[in-house]
Design a protein around this nucleic acid. Structure first.
Length: 498
RNA sequence: CGGGGAGUAGCGCAGCCUGGUAGCGCGCUUGGUUUGGGACCAAGAUGUCGCAGGUUCGAAUCCUGUCUCCCCGACCA
């Protein structure tokens, strides 16, 4: 890997910059199969932190984990009409269960599916698990006493997308999908909003990424949902990224899979449902929210390595003392549950190490040399910049914890500032197209819900309705749609999206 | 699937026009000197030139076919 390749300034080529950040930080590589991604330890480490944090939030809201199979009978998919329409074009299909050997004319050996081992019913690799899960819920749910069911699963799914981009859109990706079943509509609606709030608070607190919450327009809604709610983040090129969704499924899947329960009064009713998910796309979201022209910048809460300690010495005889001192700092930090690594690789100059860990996004670097050792301190540098500063070794764990919290907060603050500075309120379409072309950004506009107009705007400007923000739907009575001039039904947030 | 580009060492590329035994940079290995912001010297290792045919004494290079990947559009968490 070329380590001297400069990371392309995001101003000139955002897409290339993004790929460079990932490569230089050694997060992931494409696998030999189309757009599926290999997560290297550093990249997977970020996902593991995300996963652990989300898991604790899911459990705090009463959810439990389970696991459903990778393969789904083809016929299951077609039981919900909109659902099959939404996913049919991107399904990987399994048709055989055995290979047989082939020998080409030139004598080369190979293999091909054995016609004798053709499956009676093809299987699809799950693009999402609603169907298999609701098939099972049909067996599990008999009585109102069986409800609610609040299940989440961590899994990989496959959607054979035509165009892929690391983390943001890959043919196979890791995610969590929550699937809940409820006795009443209100309970399911509450669950939908509860999980949207879990995602919002997670994005803010853990990813340091401000998001706008809102409802999707009908054309952006999940296939099979009654309503889809979303968290939308703004990346550094001012495009939007859908970072998580929470769906109110109504009784669509209960009808499709005939899932009913007996009420206290003894009659049978259809079950109400939700589903909600976030994926490894969040890793991409974090990369694009905070990184700079030097490379990856990770919020401390999701950094697999939060602190790197680099010992510095001139002579061999200094080495042992410095490394011992550095190791003491490392173990103090580790005792306080700070994820820390000592980089004592020999034959590598400190400067080279600095650049490498900066490219990998480690939030805090501690340099420890003879001068520091003499003073009982370490020399600290934040990945987010600013002057280097001294930290006393005897309070290093406590002080580091607070420095990491500062970094976390400053990342959120600057991301929020950027989002606010690039969000505009307009009510004039001509002004919108001009501003969007010039500087991108989010546009909050009065809107009359209309799928045709929405498509026309997307065709003309490439911008789509990211959501109808939950916080902006008051006081619409007097307003008219910025596009059609008809009475407005919503405030809509338009933006170019990934 | 339509339009454009590219397949040569782990990565990035040159060589192809004008056929003649495979090159460069980075990385990697070994030894030595270095080490407070990307070290240096020396010695090494690494190739089915995407694949299959053809032309030729001889093909990375010319011809034909084919596969794959990338960019722009259609699809999308």
């Amino acid at each position: 890997m070329a380590t001297d390749a400069p990371i392309t300034p995001r101003a000139t080529d955002y897409s290339q910059w993004y790929l460079d950040v990932i490569r230089e930080a050694q997060l992931a590589d494409y696998s030999p199969v189309k757009g599926s991604l290999v997560l290297r330890p550093h990249g997977f480490g970020i996902w593991e932190e995300i996963k652990a944090d989300l898991d604790s939030r899911f459990k705090a809201t009463g959810h439990v984990n389970a696991y459903f199979p990778l393969f789904i009978p083809l016929s299951f998919l077609s039981k919900e009409a909109e659902h099959v329409e939404g996913f049919a074009k991107e399904c990987a299909v399994v048709t055989h269960h055995r290979l047989r050997e082939t020998i080409s004319e030139s004598g080369k050996k190979g293999v091909e599916p054995d016609p004798a081992a053709k499956l009676e019913e093809p299987l699809i690799v799950r693009p999402t698990s609603e169907t298999i899960i609701w098939h099972m819920y049909g067996k599990w749910i008999q009585s109102h006493r069986d409800l609610p069911i609040l299940i989440n699963q961590w899994a990989n799914v496959v959607r054979w997308e035509l165009k892929t981009r690391p983390f943001l859109r890959t043919a196979e990706f890791l995610w969590q999908e929550g699937h809940t079943a409820h006795a009443t509509e209100q309970e399911a609606l509450d669950e939908t909003m509860t999980m949207l709030e879990v995602y919002r608070s997670f994005a803010h607190e853990t990813l340091a990424m401000p998001v706008t919450t809102g409802k999707k327009s009908s054309s952006e809604r999940f296939a099979g949902a009654v309503d889809t709610f979303t968290i939308e983040a703004m990346m550094q090129n001012n495009w939007a990224l859908q970072a998580g969704t929470s769906h109110f499924l109504g009784q669509n899947f209960a009808k499709a899979f005939d899932v009913t329960f007996q009420t206290e009064k003894g009659d049978r009713k259809l079950v109400w449902a939700t589903s909600w998910g976030v994926s490894t796309r969040l890793v991409g979201a974090a990369i694009m929210s905070h990184s700079d022209d030097t490379g990856l910048v990770l919020p401390p809460k999701i950094a697999p390595i939060q602190v790197v300690v680099i010992p510095i010495y001139r002579k061999a005889h200094e080495r042992d003392a410095v490394v011992e001192f550095a190791n003491k700092i490392v173990s103090d930090l580790r005792d306080s549950n700070i994820r820390v690594t000592l980089d004592d690789r020999p034959k590598m100059k400190p400067g080279a190490k600095y650049y490498e860990w900066e490219r990998k996004g480690v939030p805090l670097r501690l340099e420890v040399g003879p001068r520091d050792m003499a003073k009982g301190s370490a020399f600290a540098a934040k990945r987010t910049g600013g002057d280097k500063f001294s930290m006393m070794a005897d309070s290093i764990a406590k002080d580091t914890t607070s420095v990491l919290a500062d970094i976390q907060q400053s990342l959120f603050d600057s991301a929020l500032k950027r989002q606010l500075e690039n969000t505009y309120s307009l009510d004039n379409y001509a002004e919108f197209t001009q501003s969007l072309a010039e500087k991108g950004g989010f546009y909050l506009v009065p809107w009359r819900d209309n799928a045709e107009n929405e498509a026309a705007i997307k065709a003309e400007t490439k911008a789509s309705i990211r959501c109808y923000p939950n916080a902006s739907q008051e006081g619409l009575e007097e307003r008219v749609c910025f596009y059609s001039g008809e009475p407005a039904t919503h405030m809509a947030l338009f933006a170019r999206a990934f």
